[in-house]
Design a protein around this nucleic acid. Sequence first.
DNA 1: CGGGTTTGACCAGCGC
DNA 2: GCGCTGGTCAAACCCG
Length: 195
Amino acid sequence: MDYYFGNPNPPNPYYGHQYSAVNIAPSSDNFMVSDYLMLDDDDVVNVDHHHHQDSNWSQSTETESSENKAGSSDANIHGFGDETSPNNNNIKRKKGIMKSTAEVSPRRITFRTRSQLEIMDDGYKWRKYGKKAVKNSPNPRNYYKCSGEGCSVKKRVERDREDSSYVLTTYDGVHNHESPCTAYYSPMSLVGALQ
DNA sequence: CGGGTTTGACCAGCGC
DNA sequence: GCGCTGGTCAAACCCG
């Protein structure tokens, strides 16, 4: 991992701008930049509006999402009926399950990434809180929460049941803070560094 | 000692 | 109602 400048994994599009380094990162045998984007909400539009600087990301998003329609039916995420939003004040907290009474528009995006590594640094700090065996899949699913203060973004990481060389990473929610990497890789910080 | 990980238990939803 | 499954909790554990 240390031969990468920045992150080798597909970026969280909500913060895609700091990941421009990804697109110039050398490819390697153990990683191939995002192959699929799978989603079950209309998040692509929101994503693009969220950040204007991730043109590189937007391009790949379009091709991948169209490809996704043909290939993701089985690999698609399921069991994500419950939804949460970090900004939703009407969340009912039940034991183990977050419920919302309001119509929310959570940001949920799944990447299908070819990688030998399951743990991929996307610039955020994640704390693992669970691991479950998934039915019809030999590979367990890992659950992570963002360690950011007050940030309830979650992600799920599991290997593609059909092709274990792919990793499915599902981001769930929107970060309420910047990536710790932003300070190093954002254009503004570069400007500052050059002065 | 603080923060992250592991892992068994618990809970809700769903189908039968 | 019951069993299965997915998602989360939290105590115990690990590690720097």
